[in-house]
């Protein structure tokens, strides 16, 4: 049993204080990072509540329900920035990266406090696989929003289509790592391979433009 709210406050307060002294993109990233951590806590509440309401156990909630709730929760602040604050282009990518990394950081903190941080391989798996997976989902989602906005094709079904894609990708990862063995190894490799490919293509695209 951990007190996730207390951990959140402990990490969040220095970040919020730092916002008073930083400006520009650094401020935007720090704020997005903080929002990502808050969203992570809210997603955990909702997942827990769903588990209580339905007839599913903790394992089923983690494998089947969490990807849907987590991706939906991460999408909301990005969509808010796009629609209300009119954030576009690289600024939206910055926000998405901040939310994704904030979410992953807080989730990792809670897991390590629950299960211990003594096993180095486990710590690396948490960092390299789960951490990256949240960022990959957010980056793909943000890139598709930017593309849709650029070509004046931003629509409700388009946004939710991209969200559904992120949910499925996240769901596949959770399913693969739910049992030890070969499936877990494939699952851990999945976000790493995706992020390397995504980064390669993104650099090529940036250089071309």
């Amino acid at each position: 049993m951990i007190y996730a709210e207390n951990i959140l406050l402990c990490i969040l307060i220095p970040l919020l204080v730092s916002l008073l002294f930083i400006t520009g993109k650094a401020k935007r990233f720090a704020l997005s990072f903080s929002v990502g951590m808050i969203v992570c806590l809210l997603a955990a509440y909702i997942s827990g509540y769903t588990e209580l309401l339905s007839d599913i156990d903790e394992f089923e909630a983690a494998v089947y329900v969490s990807p849907i709730i987590e991706e939906l929760m991460k999408m909301l602040p990005v969509l808010f920035c796009l629609v209300v604050l009119r954030t576009e282009g690289s600024d939206l990518l910055l926000v998405a990266a901040g939310i994704g990394s904030g979410f992953a950081t807080f989730e990792n903190c809670c897991y390590l406090l629950t299960r211990g941080s003594g096993v180095f391989s486990y710590v690396m798996i948490r960092g390299l696989a789960v951490g990256i997976m949240h960022i990959v989902c957010m980056m793909v989602f943000a890139l598709s929003l930017i593309a849709a906005k650029r070509f004046h094709a931003l629509s409700f079904p388009g946004v939710f289509g991209c969200l559904a894609l992120s949910m499925t990708y996240h769901g596949l990862y959770n399913l693969l790592v739910s049992l030890p063995g070969l499936s877990s190894s494939i699952g851990y490799a999945l976000p790493i391979v995706t992020v390397v490919y995504l980064y390669y293509e993104y650099r090529k695209y940036s250089n071309r433009n």
């Binding site: 089947y64 329900v65 596949l172």
Partner: peptide, 14 residues
């Protein structure tokens, strides 16, 4: 219980 794979099919349709 709630098929995540159906979200993928929803993505296709949307």
């Amino acid at each position: 219980p709630f098929a995540v794979n159906l979200m993928g099919e929803n993505a296709v349709f949307l």
